[in-house]
Design a binder for these strands. Structure first.
Lengths: 358, 358
DNA sequence: TTGTATGCGTTATCAT
DNA sequence: ATGATAACGCATACAA
């Protein structure tokens, strides 16, 4: 009807238009409503008639309109600024974690910055850097999240902290993790269900709370099956391949050797497998082996490892959601008893475990 | 002097100000110049007197001013939009790659989006998604970068493509990678320097151009040392642990077995190590073993693997730089012979190789 | 329920 | 070499 009018000012405008993208105003014009109505539809704030909504949505589809993030954040849409602080750039789970946080941050309308932190650095330096960039909240994946000095330092700098893959809660910070004990129990139950009655366990070093949890889960499952936990069937490693080899060596040298070995992580499980091979024990026929974490190692070795999969991506997303929600309304949370979310795990059955035949 | 005046309007402003961050205007006021001058200093565009520059820089430091990206991009600072298209969210090198691209994109004033792509998806769908988000250039890491259908589809959608960790150049796209042949040659020379004269090589499957390159490097090094390449000393695997076990088995069953084995990747090297263990060969005393890629596997096994380290982070950064430069001025580049950057590698010597004593 | 006016922090353009 | 002014695209506050 009335297209063609008001063309003159476009001439000057056009010079500066960045992309050829349609704007909210374009949508409004096509839908025959005001820009404000379009904005409301996009942010689905309430009180819009279905008719308006439909017209606008149609126009959006016709034009292929995508909101301009820059404009949106400039205009004051409260965008929170988060930082993911990492230590080891090539940690196995980092990519999955990163993608999870990045995607979720986008969906939460938050900006995610990346900041590296070496253990030998001063916490105050990190805090200063974060503050410079106007960061309000920090996502802290394992193993950094277990450093209470770091967490406290961050909190002292008025930064909200969400810990990812934390073994247990920590005062003053949001935490997301899995239930290590339940997972270890489930894996052990899996072995019991396969008919194994004598199961060796390779625990992790006592310095990590995680180790105790996983061991407790193992013992608990035996208990529930009315089996005594034989101390000779528990060896301790330090989460390395080599320590797994040695622990398995000890376990298998027992007078009454196990028909299955459950290691507290995949590296130790792979080490145990190396020992089995060396001793001429065929896996899984003569010895079932399973691990924990589902790292790349689990699928690299042969036979592939049955293991526990941590929900890394979910943990990353939930931590991000929690952090943004906290920043949006701290009042929602009891200040001294912040949430500690425990997400479900998954037992991934591969070729390294099989039914025990007597 | 004149602080205190103009306080009234701040009242209304303050409500909407996002962070408490100082703005360009604040800097200008403190430096006693116009906002425009500050902008020019920040973007170090030319024609600023040293005096102005100094004043402004001092003010920036005093206030801890950090430019607001949103405002900057809204105002028309030409920010290129890139997308990193990935296939496997938990690929070992992805985190390092991601960090490299993300950091470099920040330094280049480019925006990096993440987009996943499953092999069973239509290329046109991907292109549509990218165009919707106004993406101009795509970063394509291995193994996706070797899919010429994908690269062509992207190019057909008027998207610039930079391939990361590509084995060889491909028409119509920028490429960054390493020199596989040189790296294999260097690793072989390392073994020769250790006194090994009979070296077994585990090649990768012929379907990948990379395999031929690595094999050629191996042969070349032998040639340069005036050693004949014995066909019995070359076995072929498919880059899996298991195939490495089997290849090593064949190599070691030879009438004249090798004193060292060089596998075309770490997984196969680890598999070879498993075979050695099974045969009672001590590594590295009785058999030296080395791999390629320096994945997590290399440091997980025991003894740790001597291997070739790919410069992943550098490749990511260089690809990003190249892509941004291309988008900024395509004219700089010959349209049918785009750059193919080959970055230097590194031989990482660990415990799995040692001097050969006769 | 919908529209109008205004400003977010920066840069492009033009003027000086 | 520096400054004044007007956008950039959107959301908030307030009016209707």
């Amino acid at each position: 009807m009335n297209n063609g009018i008001q063309e003159e000012p476009r001439g000057r405008r056009a010079r500066r238009r960045g992309g050829p993208g349609p704007t909210l105003a374009d949508v409004a014009r096509l839908a025959g409503v005001s820009p404000m109505t379009v904005s409301r539809v996009v942010n689905d704030s309430a009180r819009i008639t279905q008719a308006s909504r439909d017209k606008v949505e149609q126009a959006i589809r016709d034009l292929g309109y995508v909101p301009n993030q820059a404009a949106r954040s400039l205009a004051g849409a409260r965008q929170h600024r988060l930082a993911l602080v990492y230590e080891n750039p090539s940690a196995a789970f980092l990519s999955e974690l990163l993608l999870g946080c990045l995607e979720q941050a986008g969906e939460c309308d938050a900006v995610l910055l990346l900041e590296s932190f070496r253990a030998d650095e001063e916490v105050t330096d990190l805090v200063a850097r974060l503050q410079r960039h106007r960061v309000e909240g920090v996502l802290l994946p394992a193993p950094l999240c277990d450093d209470s000095t770091l967490v406290d330092g961050l909190a002292a700098g008025h930064l909200a902290v969400a810990r990812i893959a934390a073994t247990q809660a920590m005062a003053g910070a949001l935490s997301v993790g899995m239930d290590d004990e339940a997972a270890a129990r489930d894996m052990t139950s899996h072995l019991l269900a396969l008919g194994h009655r004598r199961i060796g366990f390779i625990a992790g070093s006592d310095r990590f709370p995680m180790s105790a949890r996983r061991r407790a889960g193992f013992c608990r499952a035996l208990q529930q099956a009315n089996l005594a936990a034989d101390p000779a069937m528990i060896a301790t490693g330090d989460y390395t391949f080599r320590s797994g080899m040695e622990a398995a060596q000890a376990l298998l040298a027992s007078a009454n050797p196990p028909s299955a070995i459950f290691a507290s992580n995949d590296d130790m499980a792979a080490g145990a497998m190396a020992t089995a091979h060396r001793l001429g024990l065929e896996v899984p026929r003569a010895l079932s082996i399973c691990g924990f974490d589902d790292t790349a190692m689990a699928r690299a070795v042969w036979p592939e490892l049955t293991t526990v999969r941590q929900p890394v991506s979910n943990m990353a997303r939930e931590a991000t959601i929690l952090l943004v929600r906290y920043l949006a309304s701290p009042a929602e949370f009891a200040s001294h008893d912040l949430p500690d979310l425990r997400l479900g795990h998954e037992i991934v059955v591969r070729a390294s475990t099989t039914r025990h035949v007597t």
